[in-house]
Design a protein around this nucleic acid. Sequence first.
DNA 1: GCTGCCGTTCTCTATGAGTGAACATACCTC
DNA 2: GAGGTATGTTCACTCATAGAGAACGGCAGC
Lengths: 249, 249
Amino acid sequence: MNDEYPVKATHTSVRVLRAVMGARGVGVSELARRLDLSKSAVHKHLQTLTALGLLAREGDDYYLGLGLLKFAVAARERFRVYEVALPAVEQLADVSGCVASLLVYESGRGVVVAQTRGDDALTPPLSEGDAVPLHANAAGKTILAYRPAEEVDRVVAAGLEAVTENTITDGERLRRELGSIRDRRVAFDREESATGWRSVASPVTDSRQRAVAAVSVSGPTDRMSGKTLEEDITGLVVSTAKSVENDLL
Amino acid sequence: MNDEYPVKATHTSVRVLRAVMGARGVGVSELARRLDLSKSAVHKHLQTLTALGLLAREGDDYYLGLGLLKFAVAARERFRVYEVALPAVEQLADVSGCVASLLVYESGRGVVVAQTRGDDALTPPLSEGDAVPLHANAAGKTILAYRPAEEVDRVVAAGLEAVTENTITDGERLRRELGSIRDRRVAFDREESATGWRSVASPVTDSRQRAVAAVSVSGPTDRMSGKTLEEDITGLVVSTAKSVENDLL
DNA sequence: GCTGCCGTTCTCTATGAGTGAACATACCTC
DNA sequence: GAGGTATGTTCACTCATAGAGAACGGCAGC
């Protein structure tokens, strides 16, 4: 038995969900092929997941079901920072014209729980619901900077995987950068999470000075480089995060 | 074996998820009691679901995990009407000051995929992610009015469950009302889905004149009764739905 | 220091998750 | 039309496993 997934059938069901998500409209045989399972097994899972509302069937094709929405909304509601930060993030996108996001910390990783595109924003590399490693982007680094030391140790020990060629992979270099982030309450990401993309981020901390989330603005490298622009956006991001923090108390 | 849920373990896992959602922060023993399962079984499910990112653990308490968000976002993305209608629904809430919602049709039921509160809106009985029967509310009725006849037959045959004392439970009366809804492209809900609440709704149909969603405005009975107010809001709802429909083509 | 609760980890067994083959049906191609 | 090859569904089968139950160690409160 796999120690990580003691209930194997649940693992299989989630694999089915993921495959359906990746395919958007797919039938039994195709799924069985992709997952290397028997048609009958896949069929049982599809039937179960559909009855539970997690999948929807149209003809002979399956799609993710809207029953998933209730769960996700409940998961998000737990983080009061979401409600508080949402209007601030929207405003940030309006003013900057770029992509503004809210990254929430959960179980050692960051999850994009809100994202708004400004007027002239391209499609960003990440979107709502995506999970990212904390060491490989601006928002994650600000969160890591305001987390207990053991957490940083754990992240470093787990190995700093390179997402792009600019990703910080050296533990000591990361620790140094986290220190300077603590000085200014800002982190930058120069194509460390996606080639051609830069971002600026600032943390949202709780009463014990531990980060619960981070606000960020991202854009293509050519639009995120001018001195004043960069400094203006930086100021905006920091003040937005700070005001969210105040509203949170 | 239960025919509805051929994969029993998946059913159990979803029961665990639902119980965690209802409790927001709960441990192994408490869950085992609520679900009438052994502690060891619950423990296995919790471990599996946590490893899969569907749950998050904090100390000895479990919460719904943000990994659910990715699935929900993908489920919602399938309905292009969501993206198109979102700004229109927000505007509707602004202008009316009440609660504006978008109900999407899926597998014989309606799901609230977007909802915005106007300035002086109370907490509505439904919120994002909730699923509702089509016969017991304004938005559902407009959808049902623009669905194939067999679908109405199925709904009626399944039995029109009473949600409040005003819910339509008679098949013939429902069919008559669906007819008049088709005349004006509007439906009303006079405390049929929640006591003290009224709504106005209008359908969003596709090129074959089949409803894919409905736009609605809801408010407490005392605020949803004045003649002009009611007629103004009705006009707004109808024109909003119609404009969403045009944008959808 | 005892009692009671907690989460975790055993062992154990009946159940059911998954396989593979057979089936009905639909859609092409020849 | 007949034959071929897809599809989804339904069998019977069997070994793995989901779930039960007991025992463990840790923690908190009388």
